[in-house]
Design a protein around this nucleic acid. Structure first.
Ligand SMILES: [Mn+2]
Ligand SMILES: [Mn+2]
Ligand SMILES: [Mn+2]
Ligand SMILES: [Mn+2]
Lengths: 221, 221
DNA sequence: TAAAAGATTTAAGCATACTTAAATATTAAT
DNA sequence: ATTAATATTTAAGTATGCTTAAATCTTTTA
């Protein structure tokens, strides 16, 4: 499988997870930075290889075979991210960018070596689950983006996902890190702002950032 | 630069070092496992990009630009080899095979991170020198293959280079490791066998293996 | 519900990286 | 010095992965 094919399958898989997004060729094309025509073309080719289902003007859907391949690429991606993050002094964005390349140059044997070395990790440094060698993904905690949380409740940060340098910089500056607990103070719905309290400080977070911060309710016994 | 181009330049560079081998398209094709026609084609394209000099029926020669690119790929290859060897339980052949893939998926930044983490290594685990970021290669010791050594002299092993699993297995079984000292007992020239003494044991090595073992004279003061 | 806007597909074309088969040049052998 | 063997190049063709422009379909909106 070429890097182009791997990225294509991976993108569809990720879009399907985020039910909000449609998986028509156009969206995939945009995410990959290629033309709509190229994405349609790829879709037809991959459907001939039984990696996805494609009917004109419909959303693309991975076949079990396609999903399995996507999961193997995602596994390699997240294993590299975890390894790079633990081993070197690299940021959450840097590890993603390097893993985006390395994932296509990783033998199954190499993935196994990383997996064992890292002691079978379940989550990568962004809080995303790492599929096992059979493509099985660990139970994902019930999560929502900060943008959609309720006022006056406590949450724990469990995922930070973005391709934006400034987002990670913002998180870093404001102690927004996986595992930390926060309280949602107020939702300024009209202006799409979320005010939270973290480490005793109040901060107001615009939609552009709050949409990338996933949280889970803190168990208030 | 594509992986194909990188492998092509790298192979020419390595062949040029080993003066024994010619660098006509045919030899490169054989080494890369592609057809002669494909190699000729690639040679013409790369000469248009000023990466090498190509005149019909002549040996290929890297331009300064081509050599510089080849050295960067070799640098990445050998940095990965060194890193994998030190970090995981991988053999001299395994690290080579993985590095062959990883070298094409490595940003300059990633190479720098490896280089610093490894504390600016000069040699990879096979004993091959690692070019620095400017493509400068450390002084290489005066070496020859075991096959061409003189009888009744002492040598130190400084390089082991091969793509053959059995070769490395042989080395391992017989304590043929970089740094170890040996004595050449006898050259059976007609049968192309070299008898050496290592760790008190005598072993006879056929040309297929002795050609992959590089040694340097031990300084007898 | 019909036109306008927007998305998707088709068509034509290009670059890369390969293939096999035929033509041609070089090298080795008689 | 020819001839034969070998190597190299050219030619024609294929698959992948992209492009832009035009045609077609779907969705929105008036
Ligand atoms: Mn990728
Ligand atoms: Mn991740
Ligand atoms: Mn390679
Ligand atoms: Mn090496």
């Amino acid at each position: 499988m070429s890097a182009s094919t791997e990225n294509f399958l991976k993108t569809i898989y990720c879009f399907q997870k985020l039910e909000a997004r449609d998986t028509k060729p156009g969206s995939i094309a945009k995410a990959l930075g290629i033309s709509n025509a190229a994405a349609t073309d790829m879709a037809r080719k991959l459907s001939e290889k039984d990696l996805l289902e494609y009917r004109k003007y419909q959303a693309l859907q991975l076949t079990p075979k396609g999903e399995s391949l996507a999961l193997q690429v995602i596994r390699k991606h997240r294993l590299w991210e975890t390894f790079l993050y633990r081993t070197f002094d690299m940021s959450l964005l840097e590890i993603h960018n390097e893993a985006e390349l390395l994932e296509h140059a990783t033998s199954d044997r190499m993935a196994e070596i990383l997996w064992n070395y890292l002691e079978k990790p379940s989550f990568d440094p962004h809080g995303d689950p790492i599929p096992n060698v059979y493509g099985f993904v660990d139970f994902e905690k019930d999560s929502k983006v900060l943008f959609k949380t309720e006022e006056d409740r406590e949450y724990r940060i469990i995922r930070l996902v973005s391709n934006d340098e400034e987002f990670y910089s913002f998180c870093c500056d404001n102690k927004i890190e996986i595992g930390n607990e926060i309280k949602v103070v107020k939702q300024y719905s009209k202006n799409q702002l979320t005010e939270i309290s973290i480490h005793g400080r109040q901060i107001v977070i615009p939609k552009e950032f709050s949409n990338n911060i996933y949280v889970t309710k803190v168990n208030e016994q």
